[in-house]
Computed example of a mutant assay.
Amino acid sequence: MSIWTVPNILTFIRILATIPMFIITYNEKYYLIAFFIYIIVSLTDLLDGYIARKYNLVSDFGKFMDQIADKILINALLLVFLEMHKLPGWFVAIIITRDIFISGLRMFLANKNVVVAADRWGKLKTFSQTILIASLYLTPTLVFLENLNFILILLTTFFSVFSGYNYLSKNLVYLKGE
């Protein structure tokens, strides 16, 4: 199967969209536009998975790159929000550290022919990150979201740490004897 399937193209679009999203996020007056672009780009994550399953286009490449595309987009935006003092450093450090660790685990296990696909907790982590970023974009317009953002930061931290622990514990069997 070629890597140039519709699901994989949607994944690449998500990666490429990071650049304009990163630039737009530096200016609050464009946050409403950025919000709508971000929602559309985030929906490609759901769409690529749906198409891959429905048309039997699921591939190891797609499973791996889908995760990388999410991390590129989300972590780039978290860094901009950190730089603009809209997120605390401890939060961004936890998210990025967890993502690098799990990506390293995935790469290590891929060398053992083990593909670590996203599970429910990883999807909850991505969903909570997506909701948090959407809320950050809407906060200048809907000021009441400021209080909600702190709760979203705590929830996202929980899902990130727990899903990282879950991936590690489920795959410890492959790390034995190393």
Score class of each variant (00 low, 15 high):
3 I>Q: 07
4 W>R: 03
5 T>K: 08
6 V>E: 07
6 V>T: 14
8 N>T: 13
8 N>A: 06
9 I>L: 11
10 L>M: 12
11 T>V: 11
15 I>P: 05
16 L>Q: 06
18 T>Q: 04
20 P>D: 09
20 P>N: 09
20 P>V: 04
20 P>A: 10
23 I>C: 13
27 N>K: 09
29 K>G: 00
35 F>K: 07
37 I>M: 10
37 I>V: 14
39 I>H: 05
41 V>W: 02
44 T>W: 03
44 T>Q: 00
48 D>V: 02
50 Y>R: 02
54 K>R: 15
55 Y>A: 00
56 N>V: 11
56 N>M: 05
57 L>M: 15
59 S>M: 02
60 D>W: 12
61 F>N: 01
61 F>Y: 15
67 Q>M: 13
67 Q>L: 04
68 I>F: 09
71 K>L: 03
71 K>F: 00
71 K>T: 11
72 I>K: 01
74 I>N: 10
75 N>I: 01
80 V>M: 02
80 V>E: 12
81 F>H: 01
83 E>Q: 12
87 L>H: 04
88 P>A: 04
88 P>T: 02
88 P>S: 04
89 G>H: 10
91 F>E: 07
92 V>W: 06
92 V>F: 08
96 I>L: 13
97 T>E: 13
98 R>L: 05
99 D>Y: 05
101 F>V: 10
103 S>R: 00
105 L>W: 02
105 L>P: 07
106 R>C: 06
107 M>H: 07
108 F>P: 01
112 K>N: 10
113 N>Q: 12
114 V>C: 03
114 V>P: 02
117 A>K: 07
122 G>T: 10
123 K>T: 05
126 T>M: 14
128 S>Y: 02
129 Q>K: 03
130 T>F: 03
130 T>A: 11
132 L>I: 00
132 L>V: 02
135 S>V: 09
140 P>C: 04
142 L>H: 07
142 L>Y: 14
147 N>E: 14
150 F>D: 11
151 I>E: 00
151 I>S: 13
154 L>A: 15
154 L>N: 12
154 L>T: 01
154 L>S: 13
155 L>W: 09
156 T>E: 03
157 T>V: 06
158 F>H: 11
164 G>H: 03
164 G>S: 09
165 Y>T: 12
167 Y>P: 11
169 S>C: 06
170 K>H: 15
171 N>A: 07
173 V>P: 00
175 L>T: 03
